[in-house]
Computed example of a mutant assay.
Amino acid sequence: MTDEMPPGLGAAFGVVDARRKGVSAARLRRRDLERPFRGARSIVGAALIADAAEDGKRAYSRSAEARRVLERAAQYAPVMQPGAFYSGITAAVAWGAPLPRGLLAFDAATAAGRVVFDPEILDVSVLWPHRAGDVPWGGGDSDGLVCVVDVGEPSCDGQ
């Protein structure tokens, strides 16, 4: 068994794609692969988004929380179902839209009573006729979740 992943698989990939390229199930369970979402794997320590040097070329640098949103989006993309797309704050971060300072927070202590967006949770929406139940939810070895809503329906927080 080789430790190398097939060329073209990338730093984040779907299990189905990896298996089609000859990666064994045992290899997909090794500790050098993170399991951020059901059916998704990413190489531990791999650069999933532009490095700090590239980030420095931006009009304003990304916060650690914004970078985490982008990493999570990159990890989820290989298993995103047809008709699904990033929405809400996840989309705003992906597009580089300026957000109010402190909107993203990793934990309740950081939030200090403010309304915040947890960078571990992605906003993903689907258009009809694709249904939210058809999109893989967060799972695996991660506590991370994906908030999936049908466009026009209440959001995951009930609003």
Rank of each mutant, 00 (worst) to 15 (best):
S24V: 08
W137T: 15
P136N: 05
A111D: 05
L9H: 03
E153W: 14
S142D: 11
S155R: 13
R27L: 11
V135T: 12
F13R: 00
A64C: 05
R131H: 10
V44G: 00
L28H: 03
V124L: 04
D55V: 02
V135Y: 07
A47Y: 07
S125V: 10
R58P: 01
A53I: 10
R68F: 15
S142E: 06
D17P: 10
G158H: 12
A46E: 00
L28E: 02
A26Y: 11
V16H: 14
D3W: 08
R41A: 00
V124T: 08
V116K: 04
I121P: 02
L99K: 02
C147I: 07
G138E: 02
A109W: 12
G39M: 00
G14L: 04
R31L: 10
A91W: 02
F37R: 00
D157H: 12
Y60G: 08
P100H: 12
A108P: 04
T90G: 04
T110M: 14
I49C: 05
G158V: 10
R27E: 10
G113H: 03
F106Q: 07
I89Y: 08
Y76M: 01
D123A: 08
R20M: 13
A66T: 05
L145P: 00
P129T: 09
Q159Y: 13
V124G: 07
P82W: 06
D143E: 15
R62M: 12
A47V: 04
A112I: 09
P82Y: 07
G22P: 07
A59M: 07
Y60M: 09
A111E: 06
D123V: 05
S42I: 01
C156Q: 01
S142Y: 08
S125T: 14
V124I: 14
V148R: 01
G138S: 06
I43H: 01
G83Y: 02
V69T: 03
K57N: 04
P7M: 14
A52F: 08
G8S: 11
Y76W: 03
V23F: 01
P78K: 00
V79T: 04
R41M: 01
P36L: 04
Q81C: 12
D123M: 05
W95G: 14
V79D: 00
R19T: 14
D134G: 14
G88M: 05
G56H: 08
R41E: 00
P7L: 12
P36N: 01
Q159H: 14
E34N: 09
V116D: 02
A11P: 09
G152D: 09
A40W: 00
L127G: 13
A108Q: 13
T110W: 12
G144M: 14
R19V: 15
